[in-house]
Simulated scan of single mutants.
Amino acid sequence: MPSVSQTTFESTLADFFRERLQAGAEDLDPRPQEETLWYLGSLLARFGDSGQVFSFDEGELSIRPLALLYRDAVEVDSHYHRCLILRQLGDLALFMGALFPENYSRRGIGRDYFIGMGGGAYDYLGENARHNRRVFSELADRFARLLELVAAVCGRGREMDATDILQLFQRWRESGDPQLAAQLRSLGVVLPEIGGLH
């Protein structure tokens, strides 16, 4: 059970993230539901505690791979436990895909992997969860856009080095995402016409 100070910390951190998410969401059309922004703020605050991200598995403290969480969800008999595991899978896919994409891209794991795993988990929850079905449905339908929102909200104020800018450029080149283009331009990068890239 969390201590009073831990609960206060998470509450304050959740409010901080919610304010930033609400400000960042103004640029999205359509704007995400308020419930979804609250969910994302709580998710980020919860993962502010590394114990919510890491687990002790086979004698090591590590982040359980998304594919193994998916396997766990498929193999579990209880509908309730399946939903819990899939929520953890969706939340981790969103968090890791938004905050640490470069760590995974070095291992050949791209953005599409996080979108597929997280979007699929939230899609199931949108149809089968006891609570928050509308939130999970929106997270499933708009996973890529909300992943970018979380990345932008958590990345503000962070100095980008040349490697970060190159990775951002690569993501823009692969997706053509106008928000990534705007972020690159704000960093002073002159972008070629996307049709001219091969």
Rank of each mutant, 00 (worst) to 15 (best):
Y70N: 05
Y70E: 11
R71P: 03
V74G: 00
V74Y: 09
V74L: 15
E75H: 01
E75S: 09
V76W: 04
D77C: 08
S78M: 08
S78F: 05
S78V: 07
H79D: 14
H79K: 14
H79Y: 04
Y80W: 04
Y80V: 09
H81P: 00
R82V: 02
C83I: 06
C83L: 00
C83K: 06
L84E: 15
L84I: 11
L84R: 13
I85S: 06
I85T: 09
L86N: 00
L86K: 10
L86Q: 11
R87D: 05
R87Y: 00
Q88A: 01
Q88D: 09
L89Q: 02
G90M: 03
G90P: 00
G90W: 05
G90H: 04
D91R: 03
D91M: 03
D91G: 03
L92D: 01
L92R: 10
L92E: 05
L92P: 01
L92Y: 03
A93M: 05
A93L: 08
L94K: 06
L94F: 04
L94Q: 05
L94S: 02
L94M: 14
F95G: 01
F95C: 04
F95L: 09
F95E: 01
M96F: 04
A98S: 14
A98K: 02
F100C: 07
F100T: 07
F100S: 10
P101K: 00
E102L: 09
N103Q: 13
N103W: 04
Y104I: 13
Y104G: 11
S105V: 12
R106Q: 15
R106N: 14
R107A: 15
R107Y: 12
G108T: 08
G108N: 09
G108V: 12
G108L: 11
I109D: 10
I109L: 14
I109W: 08
D112R: 13
D112N: 13
Y113T: 12
Y113W: 00
F114M: 07
I115G: 06
G116K: 10
G116E: 14
G116D: 14
G116L: 12
G116W: 10
M117H: 07
M117Q: 12
M117G: 09
G118M: 02
G119D: 08
G119L: 02
G119W: 06
G119V: 03
G119C: 05
G120E: 05
G120M: 06
G120C: 01
G120V: 02
Y122S: 02
Y122D: 00
D123C: 11
D123S: 15
D123W: 11
G126I: 10
G126V: 12
G126Y: 09
G126H: 10
G126P: 05
E127R: 14
E127L: 13
N128Q: 15
N128I: 08
N128T: 14
A129I: 08
A129S: 13
A129Y: 03
A129H: 11
A129E: 11
